[in-house]
Computed example of a mutant assay.
Amino acid sequence: MIGRIITARHGRPDLSRDVKITAREYGDWWARYDESGLAPGEAPPENLVELAANAKTVISSTLPRAIETASMATKGAREVPADSIYVEAPLPPPPFPDFVKLQPAHWGVLSRLWWVLGHAPDGVESNQDAWQRVAKIAKNLEAHAEHGDVLLCAHGYLNWMIGRHLRKDGWTCTEHHGGHHYWSWRIYEPPGVKNEVRAHAAAE
């Protein structure tokens, strides 16, 4: 029987958001964010630990915060392969003048909007290319799910993109926890599962 696909967002990274910076400085801040691990005292919710324990496969992004999240979710009890295909969609800072200073969270929203609208400097993955990467990710996850539940420890926006693609492929999000915050997760059931459950219930 085909397993479920579970996507989880990493825990809170060890980098303060309580600063006001320029767009240029946000580029440096985001680079440090990618290099940082989890903040001291971070711990996964027990329901995620249970999902990891029951998953046939657990994989992660190659960024430190995702690797540490996978290690905590599995309690270090298994090898967790990491692959750069699962890293977050890029957030190139928008072309704002230096007199504009905002907190990183606000720059993140503006950067994502500009990127979706086509802002991708040389060497930065475009929105269109990211969707092509997501299509490959979905195929990877669906292949893993042929052998049982698969848990991916990755990133907020990328997980949202993966979810959209899986739903187009007929998968259904049946459970979720934590919204889109740190340590949040979603479970996707394979196509036809809901219909099979209804048919079984009707036959009883």
Score class of each variant (00 low, 15 high):
12 R>M: 01
12 R>E: 06
12 R>Y: 09
13 P>Q: 00
13 P>E: 02
13 P>N: 01
13 P>K: 03
13 P>T: 03
14 D>W: 12
14 D>N: 14
14 D>Y: 08
15 L>M: 12
15 L>I: 15
17 R>N: 13
17 R>I: 05
18 D>F: 00
18 D>A: 02
18 D>Y: 04
19 V>F: 11
19 V>N: 14
19 V>W: 04
19 V>M: 12
19 V>D: 12
20 K>W: 15
20 K>S: 06
20 K>M: 08
20 K>Q: 15
22 T>F: 03
23 A>F: 13
23 A>L: 08
24 R>A: 13
24 R>K: 15
25 E>S: 12
25 E>P: 03
27 G>Q: 08
27 G>S: 15
28 D>V: 13
29 W>Y: 13
29 W>V: 06
29 W>M: 06
29 W>R: 11
30 W>V: 00
31 A>D: 11
31 A>C: 10
31 A>M: 11
31 A>F: 03
32 R>F: 01
32 R>M: 06
32 R>A: 08
32 R>G: 09
33 Y>F: 02
34 D>W: 02
35 E>G: 10
35 E>A: 11
36 S>N: 01
36 S>P: 03
37 G>W: 01
37 G>R: 14
37 G>E: 05
37 G>Y: 07
38 L>T: 01
38 L>A: 06
38 L>S: 08
38 L>H: 04
39 A>R: 09
40 P>S: 14
40 P>F: 13
41 G>C: 07
41 G>K: 10
41 G>W: 07
41 G>V: 11
42 E>P: 04
42 E>A: 12
42 E>G: 06
43 A>L: 08
43 A>Y: 10
45 P>M: 09
45 P>Y: 14
46 E>W: 11
46 E>Y: 13
47 N>L: 09
47 N>M: 09
48 L>Y: 01
48 L>V: 14
49 V>T: 14
49 V>H: 07
50 E>C: 09
51 L>Q: 00
51 L>K: 04
51 L>G: 02
52 A>W: 00
52 A>S: 15
52 A>C: 12
52 A>T: 12
53 A>V: 00
54 N>A: 10
54 N>H: 07
55 A>G: 14
55 A>E: 01
